[in-house]
Design a binder for these strands. Sequence first.
DNA 1: AATGAATGAGTATTCATTCAT
DNA 2: CATGAATGAATACTCATTCAT
Lengths: 222, 222, 222, 222
Amino acid sequence: MPSEPAPNTEEPRRRRKEARPGELVAAALDVFVERGFAAARLDEIAARAGVSKGTLYLYFESKEALFKAVVQEAIVPRIAEGEAMVASLDMAPEPLLRELLLGWWEVVANSKLSGIPKLVIGEAANFPDVAQFYFDNVVQRGRALLVSVIERGIAEGAFRPGDPLVLCQLALAPMLFASMWSRSLACCDPQGMSPDVYLRTHLEVFLGGLRAEPGRIPLPAA
Amino acid sequence: MPSEPAPNTEEPRRRRKEARPGELVAAALDVFVERGFAAARLDEIAARAGVSKGTLYLYFESKEALFKAVVQEAIVPRIAEGEAMVASLDMAPEPLLRELLLGWWEVVANSKLSGIPKLVIGEAANFPDVAQFYFDNVVQRGRALLVSVIERGIAEGAFRPGDPLVLCQLALAPMLFASMWSRSLACCDPQGMSPDVYLRTHLEVFLGGLRAEPGRIPLPAA
Amino acid sequence: MPSEPAPNTEEPRRRRKEARPGELVAAALDVFVERGFAAARLDEIAARAGVSKGTLYLYFESKEALFKAVVQEAIVPRIAEGEAMVASLDMAPEPLLRELLLGWWEVVANSKLSGIPKLVIGEAANFPDVAQFYFDNVVQRGRALLVSVIERGIAEGAFRPGDPLVLCQLALAPMLFASMWSRSLACCDPQGMSPDVYLRTHLEVFLGGLRAEPGRIPLPAA
Amino acid sequence: MPSEPAPNTEEPRRRRKEARPGELVAAALDVFVERGFAAARLDEIAARAGVSKGTLYLYFESKEALFKAVVQEAIVPRIAEGEAMVASLDMAPEPLLRELLLGWWEVVANSKLSGIPKLVIGEAANFPDVAQFYFDNVVQRGRALLVSVIERGIAEGAFRPGDPLVLCQLALAPMLFASMWSRSLACCDPQGMSPDVYLRTHLEVFLGGLRAEPGRIPLPAA
DNA sequence: AATGAATGAGTATTCATTCAT
DNA sequence: CATGAATGAATACTCATTCAT
């Protein structure tokens, strides 16, 4: 009769306990991104995290809560990094904007994270709480970031005058769209398209069209 | 006690029979767009069309077949109109491209149809057959249309040289994205954004960045 | 406006009208035998008969009624033939019994008809009316036939004394079983078995065991 | 108002868990035998086992899997017993064959088990997987048992020469047929028939016809 | 803290039967 | 007579959530 439990070949208990929520969130991110919100099965998330389904409910009170945690853990910090970048970098608006978009592309577009916008947009109508949470915590803060840079660019005369929010959306749309595409219809396309060419063309065309140049009229306004 | 049966307030049988598939497809379009493919309940489609669930199976052998019929009836003809437009209009590339994008926006973006791309992109991973069908019948044909115009623009020196497929995607992405947005997160946004300003800004910026002008370098290529 | 209907290239109306029920019953026999009673779809029966589903209900008030008609048309006359045979043939009991069993084998076992016993036995519990109908119209009459021959054989000292009904059942069981087997598990058996050897062995063994011979004791009795 | 929770009248969780599959299989056997495979409702099986429908799927992944488990648990062990019997008993072929058939009759014919052959034969055409499984696991092994005894009997000169597989089938057919009959048309027969007389007559007639005796010719062969 | 057995509401699909034309 | 459109009840299977251990 051993007075001590069999030597644990896995992580020590204490570490696991603290690490649990993070492991669960990581597994959840995987499954949510692969299947979407509605189609993700808690069973599969639990299995991938190596725990039982019941354990999920120890840490998260529902599927929605789990998803919110995924957003909180995986996406919100990326936004914060962008905010820090803007605060610390002392660059002219166009290079800064370019830098931000490139940074987003590198961090998000090529990782699992890029699956989240697709999921949220695709299922927002069926899960309004999820949508609202994402909007408040990700969209609003992300927009504020870009809008501030664009507003400065307009104020400084680097960009054509226009609606900054509209321009923010137009800067992001092709990138978000590409990330959604790559996780949906891209696999139906036998030839494909170079993501690199796509991104550089977008930046070149978008910034080329946004730049204030002699003879250019202001962009539309409300 | 009427000696004659109550006057039939319903459509005569013969007419209904021919009208049925169309009514079903219309109801299905509504529900698919509101709920997505997986979450759309056949019950609801039937109820909205005023028939029983069994009747759906008289005309469509499965949910997927019904969805394919929706795409076939509602989307494919719009593509055909675009093809006809390109064939008949004798315009310079830039105005033609502008016209096509505007036409798409008017016909699609403001109708239920704009819900279909969101649905397909959001659920392609879970329903590969649906995705392939949409890709083959809508994406490919739509792309061919725009790509031909863009190629001509490049050849004639109106547009900067670049990858036509990439440019096609970049022309459409902000529009498709906006239509997806309006059916998902837009309702979380208290202030909103003028679709009109959005579209005109996109055209102005995109075409402004695409236009060949002295001193401009070619766009990236593979 | 033709005063006469377009020349019918098919069967003339009058003949078809009378032939209808027979065609329906024939199609029904096929489908019932292939699928069983519950799994037979009226759709398929109608399609095979080249009529609409509704037409079936013009002639038969339900699936059960249709099945009863099948039994009536296809099986009952076969029994009558056996009865006629016994009445007309003036043979000793053993050759007569042999003749009857051989006749049954030839007429029934190798035709679709042999599917009916399997169906009735397999689904009697779920469709008691069908079972009762079959029992009254087929089993009882068939038994009476064989029992009379067996009783005569016993009375004349050709067969060992025993329960005639039991002997009747034992004479038929291997044949009915074989016909059920050939429509069910036979296809799982890669090697198979010669039906001819099977039948001849049965007759040889059964009649060999039934025959009264010196030193043999009577068979069991109730 | 009891200060303590009501004494748990149900089984403790741990015990139930291990007992569950067995209880489910037992309930399934009942319902499959009463209704057949297609007509058996999972609802009813679950209700009879005192669990919810979902619980069935915790243990068996489909109706087919449940049925295979029934065969595995309820029938296969019976075959094994027969195999053990042949291996252990040192008897002459005829008594051994008689013993095996009697044993089968006692164990199977009078229990629910006898409903399984009826079910399999009745629905094999509609459920080929089920049929194949039954054939491989029950029919083949059962045949091997009897065939070996029959072959030995022929070799030792106790039985007339003939096709052992055919003789095996002929030995079993009346017994299997009787078990199917008792669960189908027997209830339509007001007078009935003594199973005991039936069985003893079969053994007497069959073995009487099979026994090698002076002056008997060999049985048919392929 | 962790488990995993149990639940039961929810949904696509099938098919005998009806009835207006 | 004949049609075939319409019905709606029936059923296997799924999965988020609960809770006794």
